[in-house]
Design a binder for these strands. Structure first.
Lengths: 139, 139
DNA sequence: ATAAACCATACTTAATTGGTATACATTGTT
DNA sequence: AACAATGTATACCAATTAAGTATGGTTTAT
């Protein structure tokens, strides 16, 4: 039940770009140093965020990365799924062949886990980077 | 964001023992075959559930396993934590050294993840095996 | 006493995750 | 036009974690 290190990096990097909120793109080297993320790993990670439309990249000299949309339009779910793909808390939820025995299509455990998953995803959807910046996430 | 295969096995095995609800203990070999879980792996898994007080084991000939407490007193969280230990969705939550840079003690992302985790754990606590058996888990 | 069960520990293998390397494409500057 | 500074793409390697197996031991009903 962990988010990956890469997912964690992604959350922090997106938060950073949102906070910087600058006109000119930030260079990966700067971000790598600031967030203590291995440069190559960060570059790879950025490509995933780029594909997902969360950040924009600028190639060439004086290139870099900047945020692609408003922080209140970026949810934690968006970022985590951009990195790790769709969230499934159990294999049997995306592939019925894993539903231990192929019982009555979906077993009772399957149902329970699906409910847990649904609520988890909802929670992740309900927190935006804007919420995070403004300290609106209470617990 | 996955529960482990072992955790999944554990949920199914506990459900099975609760449903069987017999006086005499069930032998691991029978359970292994019924749930299609490798025998040795199952034995190891049962020891964890035993330590956590969820099931009881009986040694010697005619030994086996049976449920140790009422299904309405066993939550999904109990089972998953018995197998995998306490739930932390991110390393920085149990070990502040991982909180990327040691910024202002706990960073904004940390707060958000803690909230997500808290709700996840609550959800897992609120579903008992009894709920599962009775089909009370809707989604 | 014996056989059928579970217990404990250690080991091995497989899968996933994290990180690196190589070669390439783009773009601003000189 | 050449160059250097950037990002891109793919493939590879290493570390960690999860899954499964093996060996030898203990308990207990018969």
């Amino acid at each position: 039940m962990r988010i990956t290190q890469e997912g964690d990096y992604a959350l922090r990097v997106v938060l950073y770009l949102c906070k910087e909120n600058m006109n000119e793109p930030k260079k990966s080297k700067i971000i790598s140093e600031h967030e203590k993320i291995p440069l190559r790993f960060l570059l790879k990670l950025f490509r995933k965020l780029n594909k997902a439309g969360i950040i924009k990249s600028f190639r060439g000299a004086e290139g870099g990365y900047s945020i692609a949309k408003s922080p209140d339009k970026i949810t934690l779910k968006d970022i985590i799924e951009a990195i790790d793909g769709p969230i499934f808390i159990n294999r049997c939820i995306y592939d019925a062949d894993f539903c231990n025995l192929n019982r009555t299509n979906t077993c009772d455990i399957h149902h329970a886990l699906l409910k847990i998953q649904k609520r988890l995803v909802e929670d992740l959807e309900n927190i935006t980077i804007d919420n995070v910046i403004k300290g609106e996430v209470q617990f």
